[in-house]
């Protein structure tokens, strides 16, 4: 039995309501009309203001929201952290893995490879001492050319409200140029 086939069947049941689509179509048409009027009015104003040297027109056409500025970052060098994502919850099926990973990271004997990509959330899996030890490890993370093995796992770490962003590579599929060693 193919998961893909079953998933396709399941997805075909997921669809917006007809009433919702009808309302949305009306809204879209109305918005189109308003836009047309705005352009007409705007064109008139621009013509009138053309001689005004102080006038400026800024058009923002960016559908991508600017990420929020990250909270204080600890750990890996700041130039390697591009964007900090928010906390995200894990399902119970992953909690065992998180606990295991937390222990592994806190263990001073463990060498962990990662890339500054995503983050850990340990919740209550580490006590304060372990969290501080981990934070200290992360602060001392160094770039490396060494090659870990296996699949990358991505988590998010918090330590007293401060967020560190990286992915832990226990096994990897490929190396990124920003790998570091903890």
């Amino acid at each position: 039995m193919s998961f893909k086939d079953e998933y396709d069947k399941f997805q075909r049941q997921i669809a917006p309501d007809k009433e919702f689509l009808e309302r949305l179509a009306e809204k879209m048409d109305a918005e189109k009309q308003v836009k047309k009027k705005r352009i007409k009015i705007g064109a008139g104003i621009v013509s009138a203001a053309a001689v005004c040297a102080a006038a400026s027109l800024i058009i923002v056409a960016n559908t991508e929201k600017t990420p929020e500025p990250p909270p204080d970052i600890i750990g890996v060098g700041a130039d390697k952290i591009e964007y900090v994502e928010g906390l995200f919850p894990y399902g119970s099926s992953a909690s065992g893995d998180i606990a295991e990973l937390a222990e592994m990271l806190a263990d001073s004997e463990t060498t962990v490879y990662g890339s500054p990509n995503t983050m850990f959330n340990f919740d209550d899996k580490l006590d304060e001492t372990e969290k501080n030890a981990l934070a200290e490890k992360l602060r001392n993370a160094v770039p490396t050319d060494e090659e870990p093995n296996g699949d990358a796992m991505n988590y998010m770490a918090t330590n007293d409200g401060k967020v560190v962003k990286f992915s832990v590579t226990v096994d990897i599929l490929s190396i990124s140029e920003n790998n570091f060693k903890v």
Partner: peptide, 9 residues
């Protein structure tokens, strides 16, 4: 999202 991350997800 990086390809390695997508693969791991």
């Amino acid at each position: 999202i990086k390809e390695t991350t997508v693969k791991s997800q």
